[in-house]
Structures are given as structure tokens and as C-alpha cells.
Design a protein around this nucleic acid. Structure first.
Lengths: 123, 123
DNA sequence: CCGTATCCGAGATGATACTG
DNA sequence: CAGTATCATCTCGGATACGG
């Protein structure tokens, strides 16, 4: 479980939430799974450029163990596995919106009018 | 500068914000500075148990460089330095509230009625 | 009191090869 | 296709000692 990697994660909501999204690619994964559910492993690999197979698998497992993503295995050949957000994961994504708006407003390079929608995604 | 440590930090508000709060103790520091502004270095060291002097100084510098905290140096002996949140830092803290509520609601051990206020702090 | 300078280790990530 | 196994790397943070 991921949930005790930050100090105070056992009694502070923020630290606990940070523990869940701690991992270089997790926010990107949440983002992609929100944009379109039922993503396959290879799709995610392509959608999140730079992540290795090992780390992608590991972070998906952690998100699964934390109840954020659901992993559906189809018994076919070739194999097929689909990942999607759980209701809890969708709530988490919602809770991240305020943070995303703050970042967009204050940190991103000044956007041309019309660009940079409310919650722009990675890559 | 801290702001490009996560993938997509240059074009995704969430990644950019995550880059700013990336650092084991930064959220705790934000929390303490919100609870009471004008904290001295030694106070923060005590208020955030476990942090070393090196890392405390480093993360305060990063927050300062990112415009989140203000560092006021008084030319006295013995030396005195006070840290406080900037308006931007206060906004950031506000943007973290939703995340804290999500974490408190879904991750923390069930709280006895009356305990765990809206945004409980670390330590 | 408020830091900085070094050294070091742990853990997370990356690269690659391999398997059901 | 969807991973696992293995090894290399790299960054962050911890410990300690010293300086203004």
C-alpha cells in the first residue's frame, strides 16, 4: 500500500492523499483514465510518454490497491486488460481540480486567449 | 526552481502544482505557516519533527523561489529570520483543501464524532 | 541562531531481456 | 499483449560537521 509514504499520512487528509498520488506518473494516469476509461496497458504506455513498462505496471498496481483504478482482465488470446477509474478515483480527480486551476492560473506560461482549457492534460 | 520535476509540468496545471509541493515536508511547512505566520527557522524545525536542517533550508528556499513563502531577514544578533506565506501560498493552501477533504473522508481511519476538523494538520 | 558543505544510503525510476 | 525479472542509475533525503 502506498498510503504511508508521507509524514502524517495516518492523521492528515492532505498527506494521506499525497501518498496515494505519490509516484512520478500517477497524475498523468489519472488524467488519461478520466479522459477515456477502459484503457489498455499498451495504450497507457503510449499515452504517457517516458514511462517504462515496469514502472507503469507498478504504479497501476498501487492505484489499484488504493482503490483508485479498476483492473479488468479478459481471458482471451491475445490477452486483454483494461484499466478504468473507480468512483473513488473519479472523486480524487475532482479533488485535484482546484489544484490544477491554481497551477494553470499561476504557474503555466501565459496562455494565448482561448488556449489552455480549465484542466489541460499532460503530453 | 522546482517547477519542472514532474512530467508535463510545463503545460499541465496539476503537474505544475505538484512540482511546487513536491518535497517530503513542504505540505507540512505550508500547514504550519498557515496556522501561524512569521515562523522562525528553529520553530519550524521543531514544529516539523524529523526534518533535518539541510532539507528544511532547501525546501524553504524552493518554496521561496516558487513564490509560495516570504523570507524576512532581520539584521540582529543573534540572527533572526521569519518565514510566512505569500498571498500565492495562501491560495495554494486553499487549493489543497479539496484534496485534504477527500483524503480525510476516504483514507483516514474512521474518526470519532467531533474529531478531525475540516483540514487536520500533520504532527 | 541560521544556516551551508560533505558524505552517504535508501528507494524510486529507467533500460533491457524474457515469459505466459 | 501484458506483463515480470534483473540490473543500472539517479535523485532525494538523512547524518554530521562546520561557518557567519
Amino acid at each position: 500500500m502506498a498510503v504511508v509514504r508521507r509524514p502524517g499520512a495516518d492523521h492528515c487528509g492532505i498527506a494521506a492523499a499525497m501518498a496515494v498520488i505519490d509516484g512520478k506518473w500517477k497524475v498523468s494516469l489519472l488524467w488519461e483514465l478520466e479522459r477515456s476509461p477502459r484503457r489498455r496497458f499498451g495504450e497507457l504506455r503510449r499515452l504517457v510518454p517516458g514511462v517504462s513498462e515496469k514502472v507503469l505496471a507498478a504504479q497501476l498496481r498501487e492505484l489499484e490497491n488504493d482503490g483508485i483504478v479498476h483492473r479488468e482482465v479478459y481471458d482471451e488470446v491475445p490477452p486483454r486488460v483494461e484499466y478504468s477509474l473507480t468512483p473513488l478515483g473519479e472523486e480524487l480527480n475532482g479533488a485535484l481540480e482546484a489544484l490544477g486551476e491554481w497551477g494553470t492560473k499561476h504557474l503555466l506560461p501565459a496562455a494565448a486567449p482561448g488556449r489552455l482549457p480549465e484542466r489541460p492534460g499532460p503530453a
